[in-house]
Nucleic acid binder design. Structure first.
Lengths: 149, 149
DNA sequence: CTCTCTGCAAAATGTTTGCACACTC
DNA sequence: GAGTGTGCAAACATTTTGCAGAGAG
């Protein structure tokens, strides 16, 4: 079973109907490697099916986010970006490298062993010390990319 | 030399005048351990000096951010939060533990050794592989706090 | 006198909500 | 027929900008 059928069965098991709008959002997020904003997604949908509105895109993304189907990132500069959650994405576990000048975002999947070791240790420790149940983590490195120096 | 005089000399070396509004922003950020939004800062200033406007607070924060005096965080939910950069803060190097239910933010300074090892290795590796000059990193752990279970 | 800093009001931006209609079960 | 999903327009919240005046050097 691939990620997409996995996603579709998750939707139906949650009782979330697969309407045309939702299907398009899934398609777009599945097809891209970029980090898209709600408006980006809306424009791409709009070129295929102009009857679908921006509001629906927002509502779909919120619904998906609350069911852990998509993850919302705020990299700064006020516009949230969305990507499929790891479970439904063909992308590997990754983090983000952000150029603070041109705002380019690079996904990197390097150093996962080191990361995992650090993250596991830290998560356990934080859960104990602060009585948290930790669900996820984000790691962003910020800097200036080669094109911007 | 403490952090505050350090900060003041940085401002003057940058040719940034220490106006009353800017001084108040510095005072408030120095005095607090919380993560304040622009509006939070504005309200605190306003109770001391009602003549200072929200616009000036935004402009001051932007100026400070661009000169690495404050760091802007977007934890989600649309409102940016500001804190003094490490160099000027009495707080230790720390990261954030965020409750996704009540939005509480805990600063933690634990596991810094493990972190440093991981971060140094990763930074060096990323700089080489992606031709970046990395300036900083953020690590956020998200979960549900003890009060919210 | 020039340049910086500011407050105010207005604009811009990104996102959410109210409502009426359409569609599904 | 009840409940879900939708588009549109309006509302909303946060942040930014234009402008004219105040203040510093």
């Amino acid at each position: 079973m691939n990620e997409t059928s996995n996603l579709l069965s998750r939707l139906s098991s949650l009782g979330i109907r697969l309407t045309p709008a939702r299907e398009e959002v899934v398609n777009i997020l599945t097809a891209t490697d970029e980090h898209l904003s709600a408006e980006d997604i809306f424009f791409r949908i709009h070129s295929k099916d102009p009857s679908i509105g921006l509001t629906t895109v927002y509502r779909t993304l919120e619904l998906f986010e609350q069911n852990n189907i998509v993850t919302k990132f705020e990299f700064g500069h006020g516009r949230a970006k969305f990507e499929l959650s790891e479970e439904f994405s063909h992308k590997k576990h990754h983090h983000h490298l952000v150029c603070t000048k041109c705002r380019k975002i690079i996904d990197y999947s390097d150093f996962l062993n080191e990361e995992q070791e650090y993250v596991e240790k830290t998560e356990r420790g934080l859960e104990n010390k602060y009585a948290f149940k930790i669900n996820c983590h984000i790691i962003h490195f910020y800097g200036i990319c080669g094109d911007c120096v």
